[in-house]
């Protein structure tokens, strides 16, 4: 009996797969957590394949920085039609590679805190960096970087040399304080418990109680609230404003499926894609879904001021800002 069932399944499976095998394949390079079972990937694939007459294949590579590195290694010979998962700290370097084609015109109205004019990269979600803490453990929440530096709160941050949030913090301090950035870092030095290679380690240390606050996103408390029913986590609003991270997608110049790639990019601004984002990527969708954001997102802090360097400037301030950071923290 069992054999029959299995072979029936195989036959059914190959029948279902048969039309897809002849259909064009759209290859989308992305980062690991996008395609995970609990990420947006599975739902996005199902929705897009429902009427594209194509086979959408995700290829996942580490995180955003690893994704760009892979594209730069492959150059024009890449298999990718679309790349999904670069962010605003990487776009200038990505644009300089000359690998990407202009994005299709879109009628969608973006719900970003800034006006989006980039001709190549299409935003699909975004978030503000913030320090996240446990409400039951921290009594006096610092209102800005100077208050944090003056407090005896312990923080864990990510290394800007190996991690996107770490780089975001570096640019955040630089954007907010300009020439005073080095001074701010010197003040923060005794608050920093340690610096981790990536976001996962930092967040893990924070949850284990090694630090009072961790550099993460304003949306992080939504995960704990919605997925775990835990309302003890919160993000601290800082008076200087919060640095923005926008995640983007783009079409490769070398694609042989140009129309299909455009179709996918347009699909990314629609309800079917955008409604999946908040509860899987734990970021704000670039286009607010018709039903609004999931319940729980309304409890998150709304920074009054958004900080962001234009892409070219982000590249030019990066190296001097890193040198300041290293000097201040090496004392």
């Amino acid at each position: 009996m069992r054999t029959t069932q299995v072979s029936t399944l195989i036959v059914a499976g190959s029948l279902a797969a048969a039309p897809a095998a002849a259909a064009p394949v759209l290859t989308v390079y992305t980062y690991d957590s996008f395609v995970a079972e609990w990420g947006p990937g599975p739902a996005v694939e199902l929705a897009f394949e429902a009427d594209c007459g194509c086979d959408l294949q995700f290829v996942a590579t580490g995180d955003g920085a690893a994704l760009l590195a892979r594209l730069l290694l492959e150059g024009a010979a890449t298999d990718a039609d679309v790349v999904l998962g670069l962010d605003t700290s990487l776009t200038a370097r990505a644009a300089a590679s000359d690998l990407f084609a202009p994005r299709p015109a879109t009628a969608a109205s973006f719900a970003l805190p800034l006006e989006w004019t980039d001709p190549t990269f299409l935003p699909y979600d975004w978030g503000w960096f913030a320090f996240v803490y446990d409400k039951t453990l921290v009594d006096t929440v610092p209102a800005d970087f100077e208050a944090l530096a003056a407090s005896d709160l312990k923080i864990v941050i990510e290394d800007p040399r190996s991690s996107t949030p770490g780089l975001g913090l570096l640019l955040w301090v630089k954007r907010a304080y300009g020439d005073r950035a080095a001074e701010i870092w010197q003040g923060l030095a005794d608050n920093i418990v340690t610096v981790t290679p990536g976001w996962s380690e930092a967040y893990g240390l924070f949850l284990e109680g090694e630090a009072d606050m961790v550099l993460s996103y304003t949306t992080s408390p939504a995960y704990h609230l919605i997925a775990e029913g835990d309302d003890t986590k919160a993000a601290a609003p800082f008076a200087e404003g919060h640095y923005l991270q926008v995640e983007v997608a783009a079409k490769l110049k070398s694609t042989r499926n140009s129309e299909l790639a455009d179709r996918f990019l347009n699909f990314m601004t629609t309800e079917a894609f955008q409604s999946v984002i908040p509860g899987t990527n734990w970021m704000y969708p670039a286009v607010t879904p018709a039903d609004g954001l999931p319940k729980g997102f309304e409890t998150l802090i709304q920074p009054e001021k958004t900080l962001l360097f234009p892409p070219e400037e982000a590249v030019s301030v990066r190296d001097p800002a890193l040198a300041e950071w290293q000097t201040a923290l090496s004392r």
């Binding site: 190996s162 340690t194 610096v195 290679p197 923290l329 090496s330």
Partner: peptide, 18 residues
């Protein structure tokens, strides 16, 4: 990096990463 507490504890492998 984690137990070294910051950029003072930069190793060759981290420099490669960077």
């Amino acid at each position: 990096l984690i137990l070294g507490g910051g950029p003072r504890a930069t190793t060759v492998e981290l420099a490669i990463y960077q």
